[in-house]
Design a protein around this nucleic acid. Structure first.
Length: 112
DNA sequence: AGATTGACTGCAT
DNA sequence: CATGCAGCCAATC
């Protein structure tokens, strides 16, 4: 795996997050180790539009959409709401409820 | 090779 | 809980 690009590794982890759940940059970075949280965001920024990677399921540690340069933050929120993720009045997600801990493996789909 | 930047995080205030 | 500052890591200039 080490021979693959760091981006590939990050995208692979992000792809493991099931719909209706979210994760943070820090979680992905820590799970991969070898890279800081910024690299995760950096990798997603390099991601091309229309990619198969559910980049919208990755939010910052506050459970909110990180302000990016493009301004597609509104777009991401819409996408998450579509998957059943609810936002609070400040546009934040309840991480205690939607946070997907990496390593859980899909199939449980409980804890809702 | 050195400085700057960026979709971040943790701790202090 | 919001704001500010420092630490971190890789890509880019």
């Amino acid at each position: 795996m080490g021979s693959d690009s760091l981006y590939q590794a990050i995208w692979a982890v992000v792809a493991t997050v099931p719909p209706g759940w979210v994760t943070t940059y820090g979680e992905v970075a820590r799970r991969l180790e070898r890279c800081g949280s910024r690299q995760v965001g950096y990798a997603l920024s390099a991601l091309e539009a229309g990619s198969d990677i559910p980049w919208h399921r990755v939010v910052n540690r506050l459970g909110e959409i990180s302000p990016r340069s493009q301004g597609d933050d509104h777009h991401q929120r819409e996408r998450l709401e579509e998957e059943g993720v609810l936002f609070d009045g400040r546009g934040r997600i309840d991480l205690e409820r939607y946070r997907w801990e990496l390593g859980w493996e899909s199939g449980r789909g409980e804890r809702r």
